[in-house]
């Protein structure tokens, strides 16, 4: 009951925010509202029992996505020109789609209905078998890392592709040059001369990094895992770049290192698959990794989660640097 009320409340805010994002002509405001949208969405996910998703949405939707949007906005016009073309057709198509969706609504199972088909098939098996077969508390991680590990590998490749794509389109971030002079020449400044953010930031960065590792390795027990950890790790480095300048950040993690992270994580993941094959199992069948199948599963999940984290962090950083470098 309480969930429903909270949900209705948050969802209503969500709709209002969404309408405002679309209506607003100042793109900067739209981006800010997108941040709010993500936070509200994450809160929603949370009260719908999806802790892992909520964490991901917050880290990626509200954090990384906002940074990227701002990075792009810094290079493009900030105001939208009112468009007049194709409005009626658009409205027609949209209304049609909505009507179709609404049409389906009334035969859908109610929210939280325990008799819904989704709760009868497959999912109960995961909940029952995970303690026996894999023995880690977080079933989401078990499904993600083992039962549907192939999907997750695909997901890592999607991220990698995005990285490749952005680097291909915008160019690779160059080698580190003389930051001060270049910044002077372009008139670009960083927050290093603002005392408060600098102090707070410098204080926070180690904690964020620590937290990233916590999320990475605690993923089997609580919400979290490679994606979230990678995003948080990247966020920490981005914070550093914001405070000290992105050239400075590139000396910490060099462009070459970024490339190694991008591909290394994916290769680590795929490598586990190859190893399981060589050991006589199917692709990504972790049970063969150790004498005890359950231990093998746990080992496999830890390693592939690490791979995920490395690639995600590498790609997100590379994308951030590509945008930032374009502004130079």
């Amino acid at each position: 009951m309480m969930t429903v009320v909270f949900g209705i409340f948050l969802l209503t805010l969500l709709v209002i925010t969404a309408v405002a994002i679309v209506k607003e002509e100042n793109l900067f405001t739209s981006v800010m509202l997108t941040g709010i949208f993500s936070l509200l969405m994450a809160a929603n996910f949370f009260i719908l029992d999806a802790a892992d998703v909520a964490l991901t949405e917050a880290a990626i939707g509200a954090g990384i996505s906002t940074v990227l949007l701002l990075g792009a906005l810094a290079l493009t016009p900030r105001f939208e020109r009112k468009g007049r073309t194709g409005r009626w057709l658009a409205l027609f198509v949209v209304s049609l789609t909505t009507l179709v969706v609404m049409y389906a609504t009334f035969e859908k199972p109610r929210l939280g209905d325990p008799n819904a088909p989704v709760h009868q098939h497959v999912a109960p098996w995961y909940l029952e078998q995970t303690p026996l077969l894999i023995d880690i508390p977080n079933v989401v991680t078990a499904v993600l890392g083992s039962y549907r590990a192939y999907d997750t590998l695909g997901e890592v490749i999607v991220v990698l592709t995005a990285g490749i794509g952005v680097l291909f389109v915008l160019g690779l971030p160059g080698a580190v040059g003389d930051r001060k002079r270049e910044d002077l020449a372009t008139g670009r400044t960083y927050l290093s001369h603002h005392l408060v953010p600098q102090v707070v930031g410098r204080l926070l960065i180690p904690f964020i990094l620590l937290f990233a590792f916590y999320v990475q390795f605690h993923g089997e027990y609580g919400p979290g895992g490679g994606f979230q950890a990678g995003a948080i790790f990247a966020a920490a480095i981005i914070l550093y770049a914001l405070i000290e300048g992105e050239r400075e950040a590139l000396t910490v993690i060099t462009p070459r290192m970024l490339m190694w992270m991008m591909s290394g994580g994916a290769l680590l993941y795929g490598g586990v698959g190859i190893v399981t094959m060589l050991l006589g199992g199917n692709f990504l069948e972790y049970s063969v990794l150790a004498a005890n199948p359950v231990t093998g599963q746990q080992l496999g999940i830890i390693v592939i989660e690490l791979g995920v984290g490395i690639t995600v962090a590498g790609v997100l950083l590379a994308i951030f640097h590509a945008f930032a470098a374009r502004g130079r």
């Binding site: 900067f28 800010m32 941040g35 936070l39 994450a42 949370f46 802790a51 909520a54 964490l55 917050a58 880290a59 509200a62 954090g63 906002t66 940074v67 701002l70 906005l73 810094a74 670009r188 400044t189 960083y190 927050l191 603002h194 953010p197 707070v200 930031g201 926070l204 904690f207 964020i208 937290f211 916590y214 999320v215 605690h218 609580g222 919400p223 979290g224 979230q228 948080i232 966020a235 981005i238 914070l239 914001l242 405070i243 502004g327």
Partner: peptide, 24 residues
């Protein structure tokens, strides 16, 4: 944990906005 993550992310978001304005 989640709340912690949000707090950290939120801080970065605000800093990003600030930097955006610095450059603008």
């Amino acid at each position: 944990d989640l709340a912690l993550a949000y707090a950290l992310i939120n801080f970065i978001g605000v800093l990003a906005v600030l930097q955006f304005f610095e450059n603008r």
